[in-house]
Write a protein that binds this DNA or RNA. Structure first.
Length: 351
DNA sequence: AATACGGGGGA
DNA sequence: TCCCCAGTATT
């Protein structure tokens, strides 16, 4: 197939006549705002990211505002959104742009790409939306639309597949109109060529879609990799002492990096309450007699992509500081609301 | 090349 | 339950 012009012609026509999708960052030209929206939307549904974006832009309208904001406030706003390294990278790049680039967002694709937290997709999105440069976005929508319309069975999560789809995407791109084209193909994937139950009946590619003709819409795009799941058991100790409570900031190479938590005792399996309270992992932290267990929650479950967390919260009051808690930080209970916690903990604290 | 990284929503 | 979502960084 030499002439692929039909693709952007049909797509742009659909976009201008049928596409009713509206989002606050659509048509935005400020690279800072586009950047924020794109980072928030990485692996995140528009519906989920919408409120975060609006609060973010309202609170920090420019890259300079963001660079000078207290980090904990930024994490607090990001709380519950997940993939917290995005927030870390946002902070790093905001400071870099403000301090080293004099607050001017880079315009060259390679320079945009070099920023922390920005990969192929986000660099193409910013370059095209903000500066109308001819770089095709390749996100989950694009993989799906192209795999179906062109009947491509190469797994999209293989090295070969990523290369193939990226090349095809750049061939198909309307070079004179990259911003509209990129926006259109993602809207099209989200609205018509959806993952499940796509609207083939009203699809303008009806006549040309290979997958539709071959009845393979359901199986495309192909993914080959499966994720491994593991189950973990968290016992959180909420240890209070005269209106203060012990907390910990997660720093290990693990989930929820940089977020706060309470005193964590992780066990290899589900341990009964009574047994846990007699375990050395527990008693060695608190000593034998200077504490009182006030309440133990039920087991809460949080599903992550690679892990299932089973956890309980144990409320404890202590009177003196004999406990072996030096590695934790003691803060007033009323200050908890300023810290960013994993959703798992934040939703427990809500109740 | 493979894997980890959150949380939510739809079927 | 399983799959997917405006992906990226690390090993």
């Amino acid at each position: 197939m030499k002439n692929k012009k039909f693709f952007f012609e049909i797509l742009i026509k659909w976009n201008r006549n049928e596409n009713k999708r509206e989002m606050p960052w659509k048509g935005e030209k400020d690279p800072y705002k586009i950047w924020i929206s794109e980072i928030i939307l990485q692996q995140t549904r528009v519906q989920q990211g919408l409120n975060y974006y609006n609060r973010f832009i309202k609170k920090w309208p420019t890259v300079n505002d963001l660079a000078n904001a207290p980090e904990q406030e930024i994490y607090k706003l990001w709380e519950g959104l997940g993939y917290y390294s995005r927030c870390r990278n946002l902070i790093t790049s905001a400071k870099y742009i403000t301090d080293t680039l004099n607050g001017k967002f880079p315009e060259k694709y390679a320079d945009i790409l070099s920023l922390k937290g920005i990969g192929d997709y986000t660099a193409a999105a910013i370059a095209s939306f903000a500066f109308n440069q001819p770089y095709a976005v390749v996100d989950g929508n694009v993989f799906r639309v192209l795999a179906r319309v062109f009947g491509i069975e190469t797994p999209v999560d293989s090295t070969e597949g990523k290369k193939l789809f990226k090349e095809l995407a750049n061939e198909l791109l309307d070079k004179n109109n990259p911003a509209e084209y990129n926006q259109a193909i993602m809207d099209f994937g989200a609205v018509i060529c959806k993952p499940a139950v796509p609207l083939c009946a009203e699809c303008p590619f009806h006549e040309r879609c290979i997958a539709y003709q071959k009845r393979t819409v359901e199986v495309l795009p192909v993914k080959e990799k499966k994720i491994k799941q593991r189950t973990r058991f968290f016992n959180y100790l909420l240890v209070e002492q005269d209106g203060n409570i012990y907390i910990n900031q997660r720093t290990d190479k693990d989930i929820w990096q940089n977020l706060y938590e309470f005193i964590l005792v992780e066990t290899g399996s589900l341990v009964a309450e009574k047994e846990f309270l007699h375990s050395s992992a527990f008693t060695s932290l608190l000593g034998k007699n200077n504490f009182k267990v006030n309440r133990i929650s039920k087991i809460y479950i949080q599903k992550l992509t690679h892990q299932t967390i089973n956890g309980r919260f144990i409320h404890i009051k202590i009177k003196n500081s004999k406990a072996n808690l030096k590695k934790y930080k003691l803060i007033p209970v009323r200050d908890l609301k300023n810290l960013a916690f994993p959703k798992f903990i934040a939703s427990y604290l809500q109740d």
